[in-house]
């Protein structure tokens, strides 16, 4: 089971570090990251394996989203199936 974590917002120091720390603490294994900074806006998409997650997925979603709010970022964590079904036949 994999999840896509998308992070957008104003660029700042330690965004990747913050999100990765939460992933590590909660047992999500980061598989891939793409990241870019357009003018001053930061956008990152992270693919994480959540099969070894130590907490329920919904809680993981909330923790990341709250972390995002505290750093003025929008963090959305979604199960990969929504992307697969929508874009692949």
């Amino acid at each position: 089971m994999k999840a896509i974590i998308s992070v957008t917002g104003k660029d700042n120091v330690g965004i990747i570090a913050g999100v990765s720390t939460i992933c590590a603490e909660k047992g999500a294994n980061i598989l891939d990251i793409t990241q870019s900074v357009l003018s001053e806006y930061f956008a990152m998409i992270m693919l994480a394996d959540i099969s070894e997650l130590k907490i329920p997925f919904s809680e993981f979603v909330d923790i990341l989203s709250e972390y995002g709010n505290s750093k003025n970022l929008q963090i959305q964590t979604m199960h990969e199936d929504i992307f697969n079904t929508m874009h692949h036949i």
């Binding site: 998308s6 959305q76 929508m86």
Partner: peptide, 16 residues
């Protein structure tokens, strides 16, 4: 990995 453009399209559909 799933195409980045596809991911952004889906997120945009939901958020915007």
């Amino acid at each position: 990995m799933i195409n980045t453009a596809d991911i952004l399209e889906t997120i945009n559909m939901i958020r915007q």
